[in-house]
Design a protein around this nucleic acid. Structure first.
Lengths: 338, 338
DNA sequence: TTTACAGATGAAACCGGTTTCATTGCCATT
DNA sequence: AATGGCAATGAAACCGGTTTCATCTGTAAA
């Protein structure tokens, strides 16, 4: 075993209380005593046990973060914002991934209970009220990109509908009328919202939406390829495609070029997320930028506020929508076609 | 306050011990009693306090991960491997970032002490023995990409020297003799090792290394641009460039093209890390692939072994070097030049 | 000189679980 | 009927910190 506070106290000829005071500056300690305690601690290689301390002061200085997968570029940008903000406030981050499985999410929440001062949950496939039973009423929670409905939790979302609208509107403005869309999984909140934006833009422009142009994907490059291949068989073929994320757009781009089509000459393409690679592909991909790091910062800031306030649920739950921004590059501009 | 085990015990008319047994299946409990306890717990919205449990059983089921930044693509691939493996074993991941600051690393290690069952530390700028004083001798530790010297800890590295050698060798084989290199920060372990590989390949080929062709960068796109601009002023100009990571290679690529040079016709280019974007840039970037996720998996597996064994330090510290793989794309093949 | 109060410290309770050990009751065996 | 053994449960100690409260000492104020 490592040395405990009692070992140090005994060896230094003081009480555990005094050792604690030395480590926390929580009360005056005679300079000579302090030195003796620290010397003894060093000799015994004593380091306070964080778990015991947490239990005692009922505070962990840890924020929990439950998300589908930690490594996707988009998520990892959010992590960056969270980490930055949490770190500044002296908090650490306990990350748990769920792979979009409801039971994993429940398990993760239960594991985190009592280990974290606050919780950030990203659950794009499952609604917040399904998770309530695994949430402690005492631990503040903020949701990201999750359907919170009327639940009394803070919610931070990307303005997916606005983004979908912007992307489609941009294609319409380029003169396109036959605009296909490559969707994510149908039960995904982002999918539903971006789709709504797409349809709204079409409706507003007086273009009839055609269900056969709404293809399902899985947010992966492969599913983008598959969707593009199905699009190639349509007659008439769409002249523009809006992919609900950049990975699928990359897949579609490759498939179109493989089939001898010119992008944007034969088919214009817009993605979503504006991940780093978007600017490097050929042609550079137009996309919808989301301030993910900023989202992470804001949600963390809010959570830290709640934690500091000591109240579990906010009096007045937030409903934040982060605006998106259209980034036009060559993949959607006929003028820049080659 | 949330309900505690004693609240549940009192309400259900049993002892805390019995409630504990119900939750842990650690001893037989009469079916009727079990039901009563669970019903009471549900009514009181009782959930066991993880911190208290950890303190009691002296196990947290958490692995700590200390790394420079959580969001870089390369790191996030490692996180993926760690997360995957840890998750399968029922462990969670406590992440702390240091931004390569020694004092942050010390702080992170101290915060994690007693909160984690095992520790993975990535500290490319600072050697392991500088960190020993903040490491508990009881908590197993594995280092990634850190100079461990003779310290008794497990070490997992990328075979940077081999990768640098491979990249340079490839350029030599394409007939290049004037091969420049864009380095990372000079105090970085990866930098030093990759540089050694580069020099070794040159030496072996009988090419005199020229210090003015070894440019310092910072692993960022911007530093790649700056380095390329300096290279453009050299006379004679190098015909090939090895950038120590892909971000810098992207920067250099842009700078070369901006200056009207053809890649690979006028100057061949090889990067390092093979991040996703490498295949999408124009021309696609040759790079050195590192099995980062695999690295994450292996280090985690080893750590879990140590944790399971209950011993702090390994009897026989590992020194693992993960092999790299050259991925040749158009940026370095004259035959494919356009 | 007595009083008052601040500084320094220790004893013990507490945080919320787990676990050992003892006790009780019941059934099977001899 | 006496004995042995197992199932079910509770009391209390324990994990390693923090904190309240009490005590003691020394010095400044009355």
């Amino acid at each position: 075993m490592g040395a405990t506070i009692r070992d140090v106290a005994r060896e230094a000829g003081v009480s555990p209380a005094t050792v604690s005071r030395v480590y926390n500056d929580s009360a005056p300690v005679r300079e000579e005593t302090r030195k003796r305690v620290l010397a003894t601690a060093k000799r015994l290689r004593y380091v306070p046990n964080g778990t015991a301390r947490s239990l005692s002061i009922n505070k962990t200085h840890v924020l929990g973060f439950v998300l589908p997968e930690p490594h996707r570029e988009f998520f990892s940008e959010i992590i960056r914002g969270i980490d930055e903000t949490a770190h500044q406030a002296g908090y650490n981050m306990l990350v748990s991934s769920t792979h979009n499985r409801l039971e994993n999410t429940h398990a993760a929440l239960r594991v985190l209970r009592g280990r974290v001062d606050g919780l950030i949950v990203m659950s794009p496939h499952h609604e917040a009220d399904l998770l309530m039973e695994s949430l402690s009423p005492r631990t503040p929670v903020a949701f990201i990109m999750t359907a919170v409905g009327e639940t009394p939790y803070d919610a931070f979302q990307v303005d997916n509908e606005g983004g979908g609208y912007e992307a489609t509107r941009h294609l319409l403005e380029q003169g396109h009328r036959r605009i296909a869309i490559i969707k994510g999984p149908d039960d995904n909140l982002d999918t539903r919202e971006r789709l709504a934006g797409y349809r709204e833009a079409l409706r507003e422009a007086g273009v009839q939406a055609d269900p056969s142009w709404e293809l399902s994907g899985a947010f992966t490059r492969e599913s983008g390829i598959a969707a593009a291949e199905r699009l190639l068989e349509l007659d008439p073929r769409p002249t523009a495609v809006f992919a609900m994320n950049d990975y699928m757009a990359f897949g579609a781009l490759g498939a179109f070029q493989m089939a001898g089509l010119n992008v944007p000459g034969d088919v214009a393409l817009v993605g979503f997320d504006d991940i780093m690679s978007a600017q490097y592909v050929n042609p550079p991909l137009s996309s919808i930028r989301v301030s993910s790091a900023e989202l992470g910062r804001r949600v963390t800031q809010r959570l830290l506020d709640l934690v500091g306030r000591g109240s579990g649920l906010p009096d007045d739950p937030l409903r934040i929508k982060m605006a998106t921004q259209l980034v036009v590059r060559d993949s959607s501009q006929i003028s820049a076609s080659g």
